[in-house]
Design a protein around this nucleic acid. Structure first.
Length: 460
RNA sequence: GGCGCGGUGGCAGAGAGGAUAUGCAGCGGAUUGCAACUCCGUGUACACCGGUUCGAAUCCGGUCUGUGCCUCCA
């Protein structure tokens, strides 16, 4: 079995993955806050951790992958106020759309997708423990985590307390004992959603949500915690603080999650996606215009820790690469495969080397080429098995490439008729007519290929 | 200011002391009536300057440059 190595953000080193319990791997990844459509950055996270969980399933007997939905948050409250819709309507709508869009990208739903609002009690319990242990205090209706109470604070992001304060650009609320203290619980006034708590009606801070959901579904410590690189600070740092102080070992940052995996950012045409630049690319829009598999390929074409620049040409290039793989597959369509084939070493070695998907895709290309060359059932089986793990090549090659497709806008009889006319023209060496028909078909979006067994057509 | 991550051939993008990455595009060829599809062949690539080494894109130091985070953020 290939040895899995992961870059652990906590130790800042690539390490051999040594599970806490090899009979059951437990992984958590921070999911979206559902106040709007997911953008391509959310999609990258979903696809990256989907691949990681698929890989883990290939290596270990049991994997539990938890990825949450944050359904209570200031941004959601604002979205509700702006739109006039109820909060639970908004969160259900966008959570559903998120799951549909991710499914389009070939993302297998997490084993458990907890909602923050269903874990308020768990959050309150953690906060109680933190107060008992003097890691948190109540002030002005808020409960705050007291950062100086946790000596190891900053270990994930590599920031000392002084550095954080020096860099802080937000006004410090007067009720904070220390500028770095962060909110665990805050009062909810008026029509804002609230829950009963020992500190009055209120709602949880963002960071406590993930601590509670991860603990509830995975137990502590668990193997891998993931998310986007920007979550490292403060979100993940604060999760560690809460969880280690409440239920873990205060002197061991790994007593919450042993490994931390962070995916890099997506930029759009070289710029950071932001609302102010108006360049936010939504997964929901992309899946309307492109095959989900093409988008998935584009997201996997760069190593997950590297920045990924999203452009039209990067999508087009992925489409071409996939087309070629499908062409290869089409040529060996008649070969029966063995569904129980072991994954090829070149491919697994790449994936096990810190999820090196570009290298794994290169292995896929080479495998496809060799499979066509040798017409080997074993190699084709390996190719399919490898592609399945990445969630690629899931379509019928003929359909993907448009051969003989039917549809409302395609008049098959008319096409076949023109094709016969062209064949006749060609046999009479009337190439002018032959080319005329080809152009006519092309104008209809139909391309012709002449094969030894006659002309065939495909939709382009 | 602090903490990070990069700078690889036309483009995308791996590699991390000594091999051909891979894909797309381009060019040449095979095939074709011509194409398309496919196949074969084809690349002065490693920001710059020093250093270490028998040997550096890969290690060390410096310079330039891009970019992210610093309590909204995947």
């Amino acid at each position: 079995m290939a040895e899995l190595k992961l870059y652990n953000s906590l130790t800042r080193k690539k390490q051999v993955f040594e599970p806490i319990d090899a009979s059951h791997i437990r992984i958590y990844a921070c999911g979206p806050t559902v106040y709007s459509y997911a953008h391509i950055g959310n999609a990258r996270m979903a696809v990256v951790f989907d691949v990681l969980s698929r890989l883990l399933r290939g290596l270990y007997p049991k994997v539990t992958y938890v990825s949450n939905i944050t359904d209570i948050d200031d941004k959601i409250i604002k979205a509700a106020q702006d739109s006039g819709e109820k909060i639970d309507v908004i969160t259900k709508k966008y959570a559903d759309i998120y799951n549909e869009d991710m499914a389009s990208l070939g993302v297998i739903a997490p084993d458990i997708q907890p909602r923050a609002t269903a874990h308020i009690e768990g959050m309150i319990d953690i906060i109680k423990v933190l107060i008992e242990k003097k890691h948190a205090y109540e002030a002005d209706g808020h409960v705050l985590f007291h950062v100086p109470s946790f000596a190891e604070y900053g270990g994930l992001s590599g920031r000392s307390r002084g550095e954080q304060i020096a860099g802080a650009r937000v006004e410090v609320a007067s009720y904070k004992r220390d500028p770095a203290d962060f909110v665990l619980w805050k009062p909810s006034k008026g029509d804002k959603p609230s829950w009963n708590s020992p500190w009055g009606d209120g709602r949880p801070g963002w960071h406590i949500e993930c601590s509670a959901m991860a603990a509830a579904h995975l137990g502590l410590p668990f193997d891998i915690h993931g998310g986007g690189a920007d979550l490292k600070f403060p979100h993940h740092e604060n999760e560690i603080a809460q969880s280690c102080c409440a239920n873990g070992d205060e002197s061991d940052l790994a007593s919450f999650s042993k490994y931390w995996v962070h995916n890099g950012f997506v930029t759009v045409n070289g710029e950071k996606m932001s609302k102010s630049l108006g360049n936010v690319v939504l997964a929901h829009d992309l899946v309307k215009d492109h095959e989900g598999e093409t988008l998935r390929m584009t997201l996997l074409a760069a190593h997950y820790r590297q920045p990924l620049d999203w452009t039209d040409s990067s999508i087009a290039q992925s489409k071409k690469t996939l087309d070629h793989l499908y062409q290869n597959l089409r040529e060996i369509a008649d070969i029966e495969i063995d569904d129980n084939t072991a994954l090829p070493d070149s491919f697994m070695d790449a994936l096990c080397d810190d999820i090196n998907t570009p290298k794994a895709i290169a292995a896929l290309s080479e495998l496809a080429k060799t499979a066509v060359e040798t017409r080997s059932a074993a190699l084709k089986s390996q190719l399919i098995a490898a592609a399945n793990l990445l969630g690629l090549l899931q379509h019928d090659p003929d359909i993907w490439l448009g051969y003989g497709v039917t549809g409302d806008d395609i008049n098959t009889d008319h096409i076949e008729d023109l094709l016969h006319q062209r064949t006749d023209a060609r046999s009479n060496k009337d190439f002018a007519r032959s080319d005329e028909i080809r152009d006519e078909l092309l104008a209809m979006g139909i391309a012709i290929e002449d094969t030894p067994s006659g002309a065939i057509w495909k939709k382009i």
